[in-house]
């Protein structure tokens, strides 16, 4: 269970989050949509304690991560898996090394168990036989899949996806979305996906939250979002240049 209350964050004079409230139930997959540069990634970094808010609280399964020390924060982080926007794979490690990393460093499993787990995870994301490649030798779509395998290998209860399909062609985009759905069914994690892929993301998420001007202006099921009367949400999901949201 994730509860965000009154979250505020500014960078110098620029207000990015302005009293944001959001509640996400265990096992739900929630997509966060909103304008580029609107604070979605900033929100995600707050959820894992990479940024400290100016005000507000973030409760992760009852623990307020805005007020804990670094050791407590690391304990909370053990529940997380994160797929970063640029994949954030370690350049110096192979695909196998990247996926094995959380198991080697956190779980301290025996070598053979790590090998089995990693091969299974690579199989799950359709990358069998790619373990010996380095990140520089694989495509963007493959990197995203490696990042997904790495995020899920330690069986986290919460997985954060920061634009997991940005810059990918429609076929790979759909395959990543299918992977998220498939792995969610398998591991039952709580998922938060930042995405610009409308309407595709509506098929993946249980709920959708629209972030605008530093706050969640609508939160509901994909159906509710699709049929919304809110002019801001309506304009955003239709991509119209006419409406209350300023466009270029």
């Amino acid at each position: 269970m994730i509860e965000i209350r009154g979250l505020k964050k500014s960078f110098k004079d620029q207000v990015v989050l302005d009293g944001l409230d959001l509640e996400i139930g265990s096992g739900e997959v929630v997509a966060i949509i909103g304008k580029s540069g609107g604070g979605k990634s900033v929100l995600l970094k707050h959820l894992i304690g990479l940024l400290k808010p100016d005000a507000g609280t973030i409760l992760i399964n009852g623990v307020d991560i805005t007020s804990v020390d670094v050791h407590e924060l690391r304990k909370v982080r053990q529940q997380f898996g994160v797929v970063f926007q640029g994949s954030a794979l370690f350049d110096s490690l192979t695909v196998f090394g990247n996926v094995a990393f959380p198991l080697r460093e956190r779980k301290k499993l025996p070598k053979e168990a790590i090998r089995e787990n990693v091969l299974e995870a690579l199989e799950d994301v359709g990358l069998r036989g790619m373990g010996n490649k380095y990140p520089a030798e694989i495509s963007g779509g493959m990197k995203k899949r490696v990042a997904l395998a790495r995020a899920l290998i330690a069986e986290p209860s919460i997985v954060l996806f920061d634009e997991p399909t940005t810059g990918l062609d429609p076929l790979i985009l759909n395959s990543i979305h299918r992977l998220i759905t498939h792995t969610h069914r398998k591991y039952r994690f709580t998922g938060i996906i930042i995405s610009h892929e409308i309407p595709e993301i509506f098929d993946v998420a249980d709920k959708v939250a629209m972030l605008y001007n530093g706050a969640i202006i609508q939160y509901g099921t994909p159906e509710e979002i699709k049929n919304t009367e809110n002019p801001f949400v309506r304009q955003f999901i239709t991509g119209s240049s006419e409406g209350p949201i300023e466009t270029l």
Binding site: K45, I48, G49, R77, Q78, F80, L89, F90, A154
Partner: peptide, 9 residues
């Protein structure tokens, strides 16, 4: 990549 390390606790 540094954020990734942090996120892995």
């Amino acid at each position: 990549q540094i954020d990734a390390l942090e996120s892995m606790a």
